[in-house]
């Protein structure tokens, strides 16, 4: 059926309908849907704080749950190990992420798509499976070969194997964190290289640079913000790592205990207060790192 059209001077009058209400509804829907998630995050943190406050009401400062937990030497060790292992794995992640991100973003090579897919595995694999796979891998040669076979190590080192040096030891913590954080860093760096203009590097070549010079003088400075994001993300991922750690590094106090392990151990013995306190310490640490990175990033941009 033809719509009813009114005519004026022989032309159809096609007045756009009133859009004000619809526009307002759209904006409201946008804020409700998006805002509900922000609300959830804020409430999660607020809940933790509220719980601790309710527990310490009327108590003296010395019995404040966070101070109590900080007095435990296990917790102090786990804070130290977390800071150390996260920094180590973030550095390792960047060492692979910068070249890999560059190769994926800028170079065209056979098998690139396959490698790209493989790099997603640590992101989509269940964390426990990563830990288990690491554990299994270290049961094979060369990880079980005595080091003395390669190098004349003196004394007890002669019979030492990579397996015994790594599994259930501090290196396992770093390796497990790196295994996952590396993938996130690579993704971030690839995106960073994708976003910068490849023409700049080509100009540098034409201006007389070798590929190495063009990379270090032009391309790398162009992605410095992306590097900051990648290292922050890798660090934060490493801090949150738990499943692979539990399997591959164990949860031995004063040895392979990091903050996420502490939360688990305290919770498993019913010490909810300590678990929540350590959780909040982790929240603060992660937020500090992100704030620092953001702050630097902005200053770098000259704002």
């Amino acid at each position: 059926m033809a719509p009813d059209l009114s005519f004026r001077d022989g032309c159809p009058v096609l007045q756009a309908r009133h859009t004000g209400v619809s526009d307002r509804f759209f904006m409201v829907a946008l804020s409700i849907l998006g805002g509900s998630y922000v609300l959830l995050i804020v409430m999660l943190l607020a809940g933790d704080v509220a719980y601790l406050v309710s527990q310490s009401l009327g108590e003296t400062l010395s019995r404040n749950p966070i101070l109590t937990v900080l007095r435990k030497s296990e917790v102090r060790y786990s804070i130290f190990l977390s800071l150390f292992s996260c920094s180590m794995s973030a550095v390792l992640a960047m060492l692979v992420a910068v070249p890999m991100g560059y190769a994926l973003s800028r170079l065209r090579w056979v098998g690139r798509r396959w490698i790209d897919a493989i790099l997603d595995i640590p992101i989509i694999l269940p964390p426990l499976v990563i830990g288990l796979s690491l554990l299994i891998l270290f049961q094979f040669k060369p990880f079980t070969t005595p080091l003395g076979q390669w190098w004349p190590f003196p004394g007890s080192w002669h019979d030492m194997t990579l397996n015994r040096l790594v599994v259930y030891q501090v290196p396992a913590v770093i390796l497990a964190q790196f295994a996952v954080a590396g993938a996130f860093a690579v993704r971030t760096m690839k995106a960073a290289f994708d976003q910068t203009n490849p023409r700049c590097e080509q100009v540098a070549l034409a201006l007389g640079c070798s590929r190495r010079q063009a990379f270090f003088k032009v391309t790398l400075p162009e992605v410095r913000k992306g590097m900051l994001t990648a290292v922050t993300l890798a660090w934060a991922r490493a801090l949150g790592e738990f499943g692979p750690l539990l399997i591959f590094a164990g949860a031995t106090r004063h040895k392979t205990e990091v903050l996420s392990t502490t939360v688990f151990l305290e919770l498993s013995i019913g010490n909810l207060e300590a678990a929540v306190s350590v959780s909040l310490i982790m929240v603060v640490a992660a937020m500090l790192v992100i704030l620092l990175a953001r702050n630097w990033g902005v200053r770098e941009a000259g704002l």
Binding site: N197, R199, C200, Q202, V203, A204, L205, A206, L207, G208, C209, S210, V218, P221, E222, R224
Partner: peptide, 21 residues
């Protein structure tokens, strides 16, 4: 020869200025 050894002045389409310099 690689681009570096050709000694050609190059002005690309989008300018491609180095944002950090």
């Amino acid at each position: 020869l690689p681009p570096a050894e050709r000694n050609i002045g190059y002005v690309p389409q989008d300018g491609a200025l180095f944002s950090t310099m």
